[in-house]
């Protein structure tokens, strides 16, 4: 369903990154990193009215094979989801749902008192849930 799900901290350092395709992981990581440009661009535009700002940023950019969507939480943690662009069953609403679920999973993960904000997310539970989300059985 999704190729890659990434959680990126407010200082733009990756906190968590999972890909379904290990061979293309490096390529996907580069794309996720480049997507931060667009996230920054969109967040900058929305600077005027922060209260009305929507967390979901929509499609950041697309390549021949991938569509890259972004989401930014109020604490400036970014979620990037890369999906297969040939999968036409996956529409805006489904992507939004992925982000919503991811946001909840992330919130649960950082609520762990042993997690220090800003560190890598190494929770196995979170990883399992994200893998499930990525394969579309969430």
């Amino acid at each position: 369903m999704a190729f890659c799900i990434a959680v990126i901290g407010k200082d733009n350092a990756p906190l968590y990154l999972a890909t379904s395709d290990l061979e293309r992981e490096l390529d996907l990581q580069y794309h996720v990193h480049a997507a931060l440009d667009v996230v920054e661009e969109k967040c900058l535009v929305g600077k005027g009215a922060p209260e009305s700002k929507e967390l979901y940023l929509g499609l950041l950019f697309s390549t021949e094979n991938h569509k890259i969507y972004g989401f930014v939480t109020n604490s400036r943690v970014k979620f990037i989801v890369v999906i297969d662009s040939s999968n036409i069953a996956l529409r805006e609403n489904e992507v939004r749902a992925i982000f919503r679920n991811l946001h909840m999973l992330y919130t649960d993960a950082v609520c762990n008192p042993f997690y220090i904000p800003g560190e890598q997310l190494s929770s196995k539970k979170f990883d399992r849930a994200v893998q499930k989300l990525m394969s579309g059985n969430a």
């Binding site: 200082d11 733009n12 350092a13 990756p14 490096l26 990581q29 580069y30 990193h33 931060l36």
Partner: peptide, 10 residues
């Protein structure tokens, strides 16, 4: 760029 943002793998 990558180091500044701690993308170690890349």
């Amino acid at each position: 760029e990558l180091k500044a943002e701690n993308w170690h793998m890349l």
